Simulated scan of single mutants.
Amino acid sequence: MAVGRRPTGSGRSAPPPRRFARGAAETPAGTGPARTTALCNTAVANRDATVFDAPGEMRLDRSPNPRLAFGAGAHVCPGQELARAELQTVLHVLVRRLPSLELAAPAADLRRLEGLAVGGLGEVPVRW
């Protein structure tokens, strides 16, 4: 299958990347016909139960972790190593300096923000 790239705009609010299949495309759901456009939703791909054990849980020690959050191949994010290093540093410092840090509200009550390309929460109340 040959796959081409169609422009989707730029910026954080851009829609998910689209791929155009020039020939028949095999997917877990079946075979897509030639000349089909598919949306690549990495948020869903990163929660694939056939790839990840307990995909809905955040597990910082998950290994292997073939997530697609930073893209892959020619479309990999050039800043991914910096982002990982920053997150590792922040999480390490938080756990070390505030070992009793915990949510101050049930996780089920946290309000998700809608319409963001990367998702997020309106607020995260904590106590220590």
Rank of each mutant, 00 (worst) to 15 (best):
G71T: 04
L103M: 12
Q88F: 10
F70S: 08
A69H: 04
A85N: 13
L60I: 12
F52Y: 10
A49C: 05
E57S: 11
G79R: 05
A108F: 03
G56N: 03
A105R: 15
A54I: 00
S63P: 02
V90P: 10
A108K: 10
E81P: 00
Q88S: 14
A74V: 08
A69P: 02
L101M: 15
A69M: 08
E81Q: 08
L82A: 03
L68D: 00
F52I: 05
R67Y: 15
T89P: 06
S100N: 13
L94I: 04
S63M: 06
V76I: 09
D53E: 10
N65D: 13
E86V: 14
R62G: 04
A105E: 15
E81T: 01
E86S: 04
Q80C: 03
R62W: 01
E81V: 00
H75Y: 12
G71H: 04
H75M: 12
L68Y: 07
E81S: 01
H92Y: 14
A107V: 14
A105I: 10
L82V: 12
L60T: 05
T50M: 08
L82M: 11
C77G: 05
A69R: 07
P78R: 10
P78I: 14
P106V: 09
R97C: 14
R62A: 03
H92E: 14
A104F: 07
M58V: 14
A72S: 12
A74F: 03
R59T: 07
A85F: 11
R62E: 01
H92S: 15
A83V: 10
G79Y: 06
A83M: 07
L87D: 02
E81D: 05
G71A: 09
G79E: 04
R59W: 03
L98S: 07
E86C: 03
P78D: 08
A85G: 09
Q80S: 03
V51L: 05
R96Q: 12
A83P: 03
L60Q: 04
P99Q: 12
G56C: 04
A54W: 00
A105G: 10
A108R: 13
A69W: 02
R96S: 15
S100T: 15
N65Q: 06
R84K: 11
T50P: 00
V76R: 02
D53P: 00
A108L: 04
A69E: 05
A85R: 12
R67A: 13
P66Y: 01
D53I: 02
T89A: 14
V90F: 11
S100P: 01
A74W: 04
P55Q: 04
A107G: 01
Q88K: 08
V51E: 01
D53A: 08
A72N: 07
C77H: 04
N65G: 00
A72E: 06
E102V: 11
V76E: 02
R62V: 02
E57C: 02
H75E: 09
L87W: 06
S63E: 14
A105Y: 09
A54V: 00
D61Q: 05
R96I: 02
V95L: 15
P64H: 10
V95K: 13
N65A: 09
A108N: 01
R97F: 13
Q88N: 15
P78M: 12
S100K: 12
L82D: 00
A85H: 13
M58F: 15
R84S: 02
G79D: 03
H75K: 09
R62D: 01
V95N: 05
E102C: 15
R67W: 13
D61T: 09
L87E: 08
